[in-house]
Every structure is written in structure tokens, then in C-alpha cells.
Design a protein around this nucleic acid. Structure first.
Lengths: 340, 340
DNA sequence: CTAATTAATGCAACCGGTTGTATTATTCGT
DNA sequence: ACGAATAATACAACCGGTTGCATTAATTAG
């Protein structure tokens, strides 16, 4: 059996409370006593039982992470990198990440991730893929559980951390326009997600800036997966094969787009330029390398944990909205349009 | 405040124990009483506090998952898919996954993932990337904590779940040989991992079978990352540019290999064929699509959780070794060698 | 009709910590 | 030298459940 606080107390002829306080660094215990306690703990390998601590303090030091399981995310390297950074930062603050990898997007009013929230097992939650009119906000707020979104939330009272979607998309699309592209297709994400909306907005702004009318025939929505991007591109090509560039709302969909274009006999970038979003490492390893808007993925992971930790400690009661800079990253998948 | 068992008991004029037993389905409580209890629980939204349950029962219903954070894994889609399936299956069995995403591989004798194990927060652990002579085995065994490896472990007494590495690699390499390839380079994983060893063994077996001598000049080891594959391939090309095919021990490294080949002016598959391992979805989206050995990634995730759950329930005291079939998946990155 | 069973519930200890307050031992001022 | 302040530690309640055993009530057998 692992030693308990009581074991330590018995050995040292002290009370549980003194031992507990000694380990917690309470200034009330004498220096000499603390040393004895620490030495013994070291020697017999005592470690406080976090479950018992959790019961007593009502804090678990665990952060719940709601990653959408199906169909997206769990094959999107973006999330892995994000998750790694978040986990690392959490650890630095003394927290662990409890994964809620559940199917179901709450379309039926049932939010599987909220199970975790209700469970009293976590001190706070990180939510991904904020929706327009996200029902989870109400649920969590009612419970008084701190939470932070990865991605912009509509409600001004909730905290979130996001990349500069609109500006980044606008800048990248403007770059396509500068090269001479006029017919630029767009593969968006699911309409109910704020990330889809904000990136699409950047696309529209860039077109508007250049005086190019929005043509909905060359806009299709995917679901942030490779297949989704593939299918969306197919559908665009059926309507109108005469595009010279495509902006996909994330890299993974861009890969699907590239495949659809190739299957249509089009060469990238000679016939069609392709632009992604996210900046996952893989973009540099495909052929041709994918131009993209690089998000600081790891920083997003770190920042979101830091914001959440702040909320949990009650330091900042007011909501925090953090926008991290993104950067257009040119690559071989983008070139001037074919002369004609 | 969320209602407690005591609250329920007070309202119903029952004792805590009866309420607890009613909810647990103990046959000793009267049917009518149970109904009252369940109805009230439903009405006021009572949910047992898992922390308190954990303290009382000494079970947390949490599975620890040690994912190697740096440098690999957390950008390898393989792990995400695995993780998704594992999380899903865990949930089905009433468990959650606690992530240990920490740096450090124990090279200095310190294993960050073991923190989780020591914490008494988890009922069992899933370990990835088993090493040859893995020190973690001793640590966990001493604590008596159930654990299962993803990938073959040397020690016959530990449980593991793995794809058929050796056979799969041999079959795929044999396919290259059938096509006429003779000089087949190999980019292996880190030498201390069993996965590297077993896949490399398949490569050697296929060569031996065909009477082709092993040439260590065209073998280099990577670290299962894109960059690692890229650098390993570069180094092979420096020694000997005259290869006609490459077998990379995982898909992600294969992407790096492809990039290195392209930078050397070589065309895939005309000049050099490339073969990967894992079968991540992305293989079908790169150009040309990557031939690979498809592992049943989701099944690996499900199976490993099931094995672990079995161990935790003490059903099976004897170690379980589960090998899942893999399948060679041809694609455009492999073609007969250029005639000369 | 009483003793022995059985059914239903309650009591109280326990899991392993934290923390407010009481207690004892020192030290200090005057 | 004595009461007050201070330092160091102990006591005991509490967090919210689970569980062995005692208790009470109802039923059955003889």
C-alpha cells in the first residue's frame, strides 16, 4: 500500500494536520519539523492522493478538453499539435487534460462533452469548434464552470482564443488576386461554426476590396475533412470548371481539393492554384507544397490553457478574447493564373 | 450547489446508504423505494460525485494515456485516429482518458508519464512506443498498475496490442521486389523502439527471401517524423544515389522521403518508388498517393482499451498479446523500376 | 402464540486528505 | 514574576460517497 498522510504522522509522532501543512508550506509549522516531514516523504516516497485532495478541496486540477471526435478533428493534425501544446502547458500549471472524445455534435440537443462538465471531475473546460448560437455556453454558465473556446465565440461574455481568421484569409486571398486571379473558388467549413464564418468573411472582404463580385456558384461548404474538401471541390467543378484558384478553409480540406483537381485532370498550380489555412507541418511535404495561412498552433494551445487557468483562479472575472497573429505562407501550390 | 447523496436522503427521509444502494441497483432495497429514489434523482438532477466515489472505491474509472509528445506523435495523424477510437471505446466501458502529454523519453531515467501512474488518479495505463528494454515496465509492475502497450513488448509477461509489423513490411517489400526492384533503401524508426525493429525485420526477411544481400549503406534511421524521414533520405542519397525504391517505416516519414527525393530531382514513382507504413488517410491525398501498409488504426485503439479493461477487472491475469492484421495497399507511389 | 426467518432500512466507519479552531508551550514586556 | 502575545502543534469536522454489520419490521413456521 502506498503511504498515507496518517502513516507519515504516526511515524513522526505528529498529527495529520501538521504533516499536511508542512508539505503545503504553511508558515505555521516549524522549520525543523518541516524538514523532518519532507525528508520522510522523500524517503518512503509519499505522494498525496489527488482524489482525496480533490474531495477535500473541491478542485481536481484537471482540465476537460472537448475534442470533436467524428467526423473531423481526430484525423486533423492541427488538433494533435494543439493538444500537445495544451497538455504541456497544462502540466506546467499543475493540471492534466481529461479527454472527452465523444461522437455527437449536439444536433439533437444532447452534448456528449457536457457529461464531462457535469461530472464534477474537471475544474474547467476547453471547448473546440464554437458554433454560432452555441448551446454549450448556457449549460456551462449555469453550472458556473469556467471554460474557454478555441475559436471566436459570438457571446461577448465568454472567453476565447483564436487565430486571426478573417484578416489571415483576406490577406492570403488578396495575394491570389494580386497574382491576377479573378475566379477564386472557396471551400468553407460547416456553416454553423464561427471559424467557417470568419474565414469566409476574409475571403469576401478580399474580393470586395478588389471589386470582384461574390459568385456563390464557386463556393461550397465542406466539413473540415479531406473527404469533405474533395466532395466540395467536385461539386464546384460540376457547376463551373473555369476557376483559376481555390481557397480552402483548412489545410486538410485543401488536400482533398487538390485530389479532386488532379482527378479532373488539372495541374496544380499551372491550371489552378490552391490555398489552405492552418499551416500544419504536412503542407510542406505534399506535392506541390501547399500555400497556407500559418496559425501559431502551439501558441494557441498554450494561450488557451493560460486563459483558462486565469479564469479558474478567479483572477480575471471579465471575459478574455485573445487573437493571435497568423501569417500567409506562400508555397508551390500558388502561381499566377495561366495566360490566355 | 449540486445535490449530494445526503440531500437526497433528507428529502426522502431515507439514509445515505439506502439511497446509495438504490442507485447502485442493490437488490436489498425495495422496488418502491428504488423508484422514489430514481425519480427524485431524475427530478433534481442528482449525479454522484466521481471524486467521492473514487475515494471510497479506490477506482477512478480513468485510463491514463501516455502519448509521446516530442518530437513525434503529436503531429502524426496515426495517433489522433488511434486516440479517437480509444477514447470512444473507453467511454463505452465507462472510462475516460487522461492524457499525459509530456516531453522526455526517459533517456535520463526520468519518465514523465510515470507521474501519472504514481498519482493514483488512473486505474490503468496505455503506453505507446514500447522500447527495447523498456524501463516503464518495471515501474508499473512494482506499483501493480495494469497497463497495455501499443506495439509489441519484449517482455512476455506484459500485454500488448500491435499490427502485424514484420509480416506487413515483408509483404509490401516483397511486392517491390516482385516489380523488379533490387536496390531498395530503408528508412527505419529509432533503434530503441520495437516498432522500428519489427518493421525493419520484415524488410530484411523480404530481401533474404529474394536472395538480395542487405546493404547497410542504403539503410538510415529516422525518428518517425517528417523531418526525420527527410534527413534520413538525404543522407542515403549522399551515400548512394542509385536506389530504385524506398521503404519508410511509417507514412509520415515517407512524406519526408518524398520531399527529399523531389529535391534531388527524382520523380516518384518513375525514378524511385516509395512505400510507407500505417495507412493514415492522408496517404491517399498526396501526390502521387502513397503506397502503404494499412494498419487498422481504429481497431488498435478499441482493442487496446478492451484488453486493458480486461486486465483492470482482473478477469485475465495472464498477459494478452494481440496482433491485428495489416494490409498492403498499393498506390501511385510504387511502380516498376525504370528500364535501363 | 412465540420463535425463527427474511426483508428493508439505518448506523457508523472508512477512503485520504484539508482546514477552522482549540490547546499547549514559549517568549515577551513590564 | 505574571499576564499577554506568539509560536507550534493537535483535535475534530468535513468533503461525498461506499459498505459491513446492526436494527427494526414483517412474514413464516412450528
Amino acid at each position: 500500500m502506498r503511504p498515507t498522510l496518517q502513516d507519515m504522522a504516526s511515524i513522526l509522532n505528529l498529527s495529520k494536520s501538521t504533516v499536511s501543512r508542512a508539505l503545503a508550506g504553511d508558515p505555521r509549522v516549524a522549520e525543523a519539523t518541516r524538514n523532518r516531514v519532507v525528508a520522510l516523504a522523500e524517503r518512503i516516497g509519499y505522494r498525496p492522493n489527488p482524489i482525496a485532495q480533490g474531495l477535500a478541496t473541491r478542485r481536481t486540477n484537471i482540465i476537460g478538453l472537448a475534442v470533436p471526435c467524428a467526423p473531423r478533428s481526430l484525423s486533423d493534425p492541427f488538433y494533435l499539435e494543439f493538444l500537445g501544446a495544451a497538455g504541456d502547458t497544462a502540466m506546467r500549471y499543475g493540471y492534466s487534460l481529461l479527454l472527452s472524445a465523444a461522437d455527437g455534435d449536439g444536433a439533437d440537443g444532447y452534448h456528449p462533452h457536457m457529461e464531462l462538465a457535469h461530472s464534477a471531475r474537471v475544474d474547467g473546460m476547453i471547448l473546440t469548434e464554437p458554433k454560432i448560437q452555441d448551446e454549450r455556453v448556457g449549460i456551462l454558465r449555469k453550472m458556473g464552470l469556467p471554460f474557454v473556446f478555441l475559436g471566436m465565440a459570438e457571446d461577448p461574455d465568454v472567453s476565447w482564443v483564436s487565430g486571426e481568421n478573417t484578416g489571415g484569409a483576406a490577406e492570403a486571398v488578396a495575394h491570389l488576386i494580386d497574382l491576377g486571379h479573378r475566379k477564386i473558388a472557396c471551400v468553407t467549413g460547416p456553416a454553423d461554426q464561427t471559424a467557417s464564418e470568419t474565414r469566409f468573411k476574409g475571403y469576401r472582404e478580399a474580393l470586395a476590396e478588389a471589386g470582384i463580385p461574390l459568385d456563390l456558384n464557386i463556393v461550397a461548404s465542406g466539413d473540415f475533412t479531406q473527404i469533405g474538401g474533395y466532395q466540395a471541390m467536385k461539386s464546384i467543378l460540376r457547376h463551373d470548371g473555369d476557376i483559376s484558384a481555390v481557397f480552402a478553409s483548412n489545410d486538410v480540406m485543401a488536400f482533398g481539393v487538390m485530389r479532386a483537381l488532379r482527378e479532373a485532370g488539372l495541374v496544380i498550380p499551372d491550371d489552378v492554384s490552391v490555398l489552405g489555412f492552418d499551416g500544419i507541418p504536412l503542407t510542406q511535404y505534399v506535392n506541390p507544397p501547399l500555400a497556407t495561412v500559418r496559425q501559431p498552433i502551439s501558441e494557441l494551445g498554450s494561450a488557451i490553457v493560460e486563459v483558462l487557468v486565469g479564469q479558474m483562479n478567479g483572477k480575471s472575472l471579465c471575459p478574455i478574447h485573445k487573437v493571435l497573429n497568423v501569417e500567409y505562407q506562400p508555397a508551390g501550390s500558388v502561381a499566377p493564373p495561366r495566360c490566355r
